[in-house]
Design a protein around this nucleic acid. Structure first.
Lengths: 228, 228
DNA sequence: ACTCGGTAAGTGAGTGATTACTTACCTTGA
DNA sequence: TCAAGGTAAGTAATCACTCACTTACCGAGT
């Protein structure tokens, strides 16, 4: 069974005279990278070990020297992708200042703009639909952390009287739902973007914080706004 | 090749003394029903023709007498599920009255409560992820019609000054995003519902129309509300 | 009324191709 | 030298799909 956590470089990494034959760890990394792309594109059942081997440029036999089964390789990929993002630092600073707009904008930007790895969403959906056992953990660290954190913030702001008294968890899910749906349309259903990401983020945040109903419409609302 | 459009009942349908052997059309319908459930649960690649046949209670050979290929069966299912829902009548009535809350509540209820067929969402996602050619049409009639209609309504209400001047399409997508995400959590990621559907619908609609920011918080808004 | 034949409904036992995975063996490099 | 890196050529199982064949149904002819 291959060890994923060992950090013992077998060969010098500094200006190494590239060997003809990469080390086991380098191979393992390249296998994971190639397999992740294929699994994201075609799912677990839709990807064959032969395809993976060909994509890496090795034989199937070597593939099975690194990972005992296809499922173990898949699990290794999900485990590698599971990592709590560190974005929370800047968000927490904005949260400390009670800058609502900044909190939501930072999270929205991260979820829409910096969706660095476009394979993550497909991998997440495939693993959930196909019922992989690591899907729940993947979902928790890649998606749920955001609305869990948001729910806590919203609950706090409600007690402070800044937000209306809605269910914080439901509100948090509503916001992340907007963002996830945005990515879903583009990355899964291939709907073309009709405006730049920055505008979308601003629109989503404004919509969520201030609502759709016009501030000065008839007898409904009178508004005196601070900024913008 | 079996003909799908022939409407020539070989046996009397009225109070028929159930024959031992169902007609071809009855068989075809039961095949589609059983296969749809399996495809929704396991995807196209994850479902075998043997499983389908066993689920219907027939031999694989008979399955292939009704559908020339597995893919043709899958396509027949997607085509059958593609049907513009008729909900629009009640929604259009509310729209005519300019009852914003009712318009959004009706759509939200339909998308959350009456998601009659729980396999539809899984089928939609699987077909999109696996890249089936009918996926786009399926998406259009099952999902896009809602936010297209909403976008039109929102655009109209903006010109009337009732809604703020956001991008109508983006706003419509944001609302349906909330709803889709709600179903996604429950049906795909198995997150348990923590409140009844009616409350969720009300919360989503209020959130979307009026926003999260408290109406009387500090210097931001002064509100005189008509109802509730 | 009753047989009889045409046809639709239905199946057991395969087909070759592809699957995940193995075995026995070679090559490279320190 | 010798372990780690690497492969050609398998394996049994499973895949979508086919073939040759039987069974049930129903209307027409007598």
């Amino acid at each position: 069974m291959p060890t994923l956590h060992a950090v013992k470089p077998h060969r010098p990494l500094t200006g190494a005279p590239r060997s003809l034959r990469p080390s086991g760890q380098e191979r393992q990394a390249s296998i994971i990278a190639a397999a992740a792309a294929l699994f994201a594109a075609n799912g677990f059942k839709g990807t064959t070990t032969k395809e993976i081997a060909r994509s890496v440029g090795i034989s199937e036999a070597l593939l099975f020297k690194h990972f005992p089964t296809k499922r173990a390789l898949y699990a290794a990929i999900l485990k590698e992708k599971v990592s709590i993002p560190e974005l929370l630092a800047s968000v927490e600073e904005a949260a400390r200042k009670r800058d609502d707009r900044q909190v939501f904008t930072l999270i929205a930007s991260h979820r829409i703009r910096r969706s660095a790895d476009p394979t993550l969403l497909r991998l997440l959906l495939f693993s959930a639909l196909e019922g992989h056992e690591l899907s729940a953990m993947f979902f928790r660290t890649q998606h749920r952390v955001f609305y869990d954190y948001l729910a806590g913030y919203i609950a706090q702001r409600i007690t402070e009287g800044a937000f209306r008294g809605v269910d914080p968890m439901l509100a948090a899910r509503a916001f992340t739902g907007m963002l996830t749906h945005h990515r879903l349309l583009h990355e899964i259903f291939c709907v073309p973007a009709h405006r730049n990401p920055g505008d979308s983020v601003t629109a989503y945040v404004t919509l969520f914080l201030d609502g759709l109903t016009a501030p000065c419409s008839g007898s409904r609302k009178l508004v005196t706004r601070g900024k913008a």
